[in-house]
């Protein structure tokens, strides 16, 4: 087995608190006991690859993929793009990124979502793509609506897109959310507030990016993502006895 070095241990301080009373559902769904820490093993350092999976031509186009190209979704057209990097600042190529989101009215196409904003018959709300050789990805979609949710008596989610990201190791697996620059609801959201370090939350807020906006067609937002990296020093992975 090739040894690419252990994963850099996760800095839990930049991640949300598992137990956060402001986000009520987390209260009964967070472990009380400490996590068991140890150096990564092949089980975390290897991971699934999706070369065998056939992605459809419209999989990263949420404006058209629900209707298979027959009719566009309602909403403000946007391009979401960025790079997938690791902690060593290296691009992660050929990695699977999946996203899901509410429609322009703030309603999800899920059997459990009963919010009275209407479903858009032309919008499904999920997409996926594989990063290119430079770790770059793009999605064409519509800006999701904000929506109310049952937590405290009047909580609203800011506009957001859910991201699920694979690197090349199962230990890099990450789910996060992308927020939009300038959305005033970010400062009122108990889920965003589970991240205690404001600078880490700010890194989940995508800026408006005119460099990728297409005139008379769509605006663009840039969202770079960083996954765990791997440690390798001159003192590691040497032949036995050296």
């Amino acid at each position: 087995m090739t040894d690419h070095g252990p994963l850099i241990p996760r800095n839990r301080a930049i991640h949300p608190e598992p137990y956060d009373p402001g986000y009520k559902t987390s209260v009964a769904r967070s472990p009380f006991l400490p996590l068991l820490s140890m150096e990564s093993t092949p089980s975390e350092e290897t991971g699934p690859r999706f070369g065998h999976t056939k992605l459809g031509a419209l999989d990263n186009n949420l404006i058209l993929n629900w209707t298979k190209g027959a009719a566009p979704a309602v909403g403000e057209r946007i391009l979401v793009h960025g790079r997938l990097l690791d902690e060593m600042n290296r691009p992660i190529p050929n990695a699977l990124i999946e996203i899901w989101q509410a429609n322009a009215g703030g309603r999800y196409r899920h059997k459990k979502d009963t919010y009275f904003a209407p479903l858009d018959p032309n919008f499904g709300g999920c997409g996926r793509t594989i990063t290119d050789e430079n770790g770059y990805y793009e999605f064409l979609t519509i800006r999701p609506g904000a929506y109310p949710w049952p937590n405290r008596a009047n909580d609203w989610r800011p506009m957001h897109i859910h991201f699920s990201i694979f690197g090349h190791s199962f230990g890099q697996r990450l789910i996060s959310q992308m927020y939009f620059e300038g959305d005033p609801l970010i400062n009122h959201c108990p889920i965003a507030a589970t991240i205690k370090d404001r600078s880490q939350l700010d890194r989940l807020v995508a800026p408006l990016d005119f460099s990728k906006s297409r005139p008379l067609d769509f605006l663009a937002y840039k969202f770079d993502i960083v996954l765990r990296g791997r440690r390798q020093t001159m003192f590691e992975n040497k032949l036995e006895g050296m």
Binding site: R10, S26, E98, W100, V226
Partner: peptide
């Protein structure tokens, strides 16, 4: 070096994205 992106909950509708 860079810092890992922070996690956020998968939420109640994670199945839309991962298990349509």
């Amino acid at each position: 070096t860079l810092i890992e992106s922070a996690s956020q909950t998968a939420g109640p509708y994670v199945h839309i994205g991962l298990m349509p």
